[in-house]
């Protein structure tokens, strides 16, 4: 079956036997993390994995174990073939308490992608509303 992984601003569809795990080879593309001897790694940062047998079964990464290892929340609907990964609540709290504005990319009114960090050293006012 196919499974869609919602991670940050990305949605990636991969093959999944169970609806709750994805192939080791698909992990990097779907999540930005990859499995190495050191543990789960993103760039130069690696997080040790205490129970690799819980994380990897038959060459597939269990998404619940993956989220647990990274202390990230996850919602998995195996029947519908979709999972959403969130950010670590502790990391979000630390960033907000330290006043760090998370970067983001959105389409502007002309459909062109705009990334906040590329605006440069300017004052920025982010206005959010809904037209309902």
């Amino acid at each position: 079956m196919k499974m869609t992984i919602l991670n940050g601003e990305r949605a990636t569809t991969v093959d999944s036997d169970s609806g709750s795990s994805i192939g080791v080879a698909d992990l990097l593309n779907a999540t930005g993390w990859q499995l190495k001897a050191e543990g789960l790694c993103q760039g130069d940062v690696c997080v040790p994995v205490r129970d690799r047998n819980e994380l990897v079964v038959d060459d597939a990464v269990d998404l619940a174990a993956f989220a647990k290892a990274l202390r990230r929340p996850v919602v998995i609907d195996a029947g519908a073939g979709v999972a959403a990964l969130g950010e670590s609540t502790a990391e979000v709290g630390d960033k907000l308490h330290n006043r760090i504005a998370p970067d983001f990319t959105l389409a502007d009114i002309n459909g062109q992608e705009m990334t906040m960090s590329k605006i440069g050293r300017k004052k920025k006012v982010l206005v959010v509303w809904s037209s309902w």
């Binding site: 919602l6 929340p73 919602v75 609907d77 519908a80 609540t89 979000v92 709290g93 907000l96 006043r99």
Partner: peptide, 26 residues
């Protein structure tokens, strides 16, 4: 005072957003 006034999401808030994201995708 700015850091103190941030509305930090709880674990349930984060899970709620993920469920809504899954729902919107479906």
């Amino acid at each position: 005072d700015v850091g103190k006034l941030q509305n930090v999401p709880t674990g349930d808030d984060e899970l709620a957003r993920l469920h809504r994201r899954v729902a919107a995708h479906l």
